[in-house]
Design a protein around this nucleic acid. Sequence first.
DNA 1: GGTTAATGTTTCTGCTGTAAACATACGGGC
DNA 2: GCCCGTATGTTTACAGCAGAAACATTAACC
Lengths: 194, 194
Amino acid sequence: MITVSTSKIAARAYHHGDLRSALVEAGLVALKTTAIADMSLRQLARDVGVSATAVYRHFPDKQALMQALASEGINQLGVFQKAAAEGSADQAGDFAATGRAYVRFALAHPALFRLIFSQSEPVGQTIFGDNLAAQMLQDKAARVTGGDPEETRRLMIQAWSVVHGLAMLMLDRQLPADDALIDRVIDSATLFPR
Amino acid sequence: MITVSTSKIAARAYHHGDLRSALVEAGLVALKTTAIADMSLRQLARDVGVSATAVYRHFPDKQALMQALASEGINQLGVFQKAAAEGSADQAGDFAATGRAYVRFALAHPALFRLIFSQSEPVGQTIFGDNLAAQMLQDKAARVTGGDPEETRRLMIQAWSVVHGLAMLMLDRQLPADDALIDRVIDSATLFPR
DNA sequence: GGTTAATGTTTCTGCTGTAAACATACGGGC
DNA sequence: GCCCGTATGTTTACAGCAGAAACATTAACC
């Protein structure tokens, strides 16, 4: 994946080749075993084999690197949700499937999921964000409500709240991270006013 | 509030009087203007007017102090919810009122609210916790379902998920922190399977 | 081939949590 | 009234952190 563009065969000296990508990749790996609070620029630099401050040639500060990781994370979430939705029959099942995927993604990548939402600059750009995950939420919701914009918006927010809350409470060990529980909560969530 | 138990009039020398309480109090104040990640033992010690390491006579480490703050926070949440529930007529309104209070508390005390759930040792002790907030959730839910334990549990989890998710998304600026929106989401949340 | 910009490294500052050794003062037993 | 143990402070020290500043190396282009 990391290839130096020039003819020289991966000269390991001084210039790295593509330090930025390498840092992001290392960051994603680190997030599998490291909590957000314990993420360290210096450690990442060590992992990549570069001096501590080299990072600052590619990111203005730590926050910027974290933001890049979060951005990559929200991408992966969208892809994962899309894959999950493709295997279901009706549209209501579709919607539920993306919700289940949301929670399962959170449980599978806890630190990454948290990171997505711990950027003060919302990387999940409110519900009008331009990422795949947000788009899917909008589309599925609109299809379920039949298109009425106000109802669609309400459904989006309510559905998002349920899965987000469930995910967070499970991540924070307030609820057991139980697959059956996810299904039960989502299946019995009737999101329409009577 | 801080009084030395002996006759000496608040001798500010060497022994503080009640450093533990003072630290907790200072911590709660600090949380009004400081994000969790930026909370510092040394700063708290400075605020109270004591050396940096004096803290360790009362708390084994930073985590323990944070836990104490979280514990106080969940207390306050319970009290706030109780007060909110007392002004409503029927039981369903009761339940909704505690939900609204949950979200409003989160918005009013963002860092404190986050702290409650950011302790790896769950201070909101799963849903069987012994704190007032958890007790209220259980009671209100049981009253609504008529007592059926399985249904009660489902309702608790679902209701908790909605309000927790809504609160988190608003805190993380993914949704506008709008009072009317809170009402709309909670009022239209029909939490029973058809 | 030499200049310039991009991308590295070293070195430094000030912050953090926390361990260890030492100082002070309170309270109870003689 | 003195004395000593224990609780509760302080000072000093260390390692790790984010980031600023000055300097080194390399690649790319004229």
